[in-house]
Design a protein around this nucleic acid. Structure first.
Lengths: 122, 122
DNA sequence: GACTATACCTCGACGTCCGATGTATCATGT
DNA sequence: ACATGATACATCGGACGTCGAGGTATAGTC
């Protein structure tokens, strides 16, 4: 069987998505479809953000007042909703960024027992 | 209302638990309760593994043949199930370790735009 | 005898994320 | 004119992982 139990290897870890999307938007405003591509590009397709995840998330962030959307048009003439961070969004981004940076470091330390650093020795 | 939507800040990211538990066991065999404490200790309580998560996971890993359990007794006389990795478990551990180390690095790179790496400057 | 720490276990609920599916427009090829 | 494929937005059902509350039992301490 060796079923792999799936355990979701190719997926974006729970909760990181918010931090990532916000962070991407803090680099520069973008629209949904573009965000998907940027992410796939920046991670060499290691993370592939499905639209079914992204759009609802974007709407949610908008409801929470963290992003705002402007309707626009691309050079090729297609409709676009450009999302950009609000001031509150910028604050939240920082908060989530710190949180996930710490989490990533924690995981790394746990997985490499002989890892150095640690700011506070023992 | 600044709802926080919870988005689970204090939690262990989805899927990382397997890697972490396997890695902990590869350091040294242990029992469930001990694992919880080790993890809380090693992360200064940033990750707190609930027993409701751990025990089912341990049973699952056992079913998959990644760990084996021996019944034992602690110095104080209490019953214990000591889990240790099988050969297959050791292999899986390495695989998950690599995966999560890469994931953690990826997140870090995404969150810090001026981070190095990138191998292919587009 | 009551209480706490140790030690194991099960169950239900919840949130996150994915995949499938649907719409419409623009560019290209025939 | 029509088919196709990339762009672009959107919704819905379902799966999976994790948590928290609860249950059992033994050892030590007051």
């Amino acid at each position: 069987m060796a079923r792999e139990t799936s355990s979701s290897k190719g997926e974006i870890p729970k909760g990181a998505l918010r931090a990532i999307v916000l962070s991407l938007l803090s680099d520069e405003p973008s629209h949904g479809y573009g965000l998907c591509q940027t992410l796939a590009g920046r991670t060499r397709s290691a993370f592939e953000l499905s639209e079914g995840t992204l759009y609802p998330l974007l709407h949610e962030l908008e409801l929470e007042g963290l992003v705002e959307a402007k309707d626009g048009v691309s050079e090729t003439g297609r409709k676009r909703r450009i999302y950009h961070l609000t001031r509150a969004g910028r604050r939240e981004t920082e908060s989530w960024r710190k949180h996930w940076l710490a989490t990533a470091e924690l995981i790394t330390e746990l997985l490499i027992p002989d890892a150095p650093a640690r700011t506070r020795s023992r």
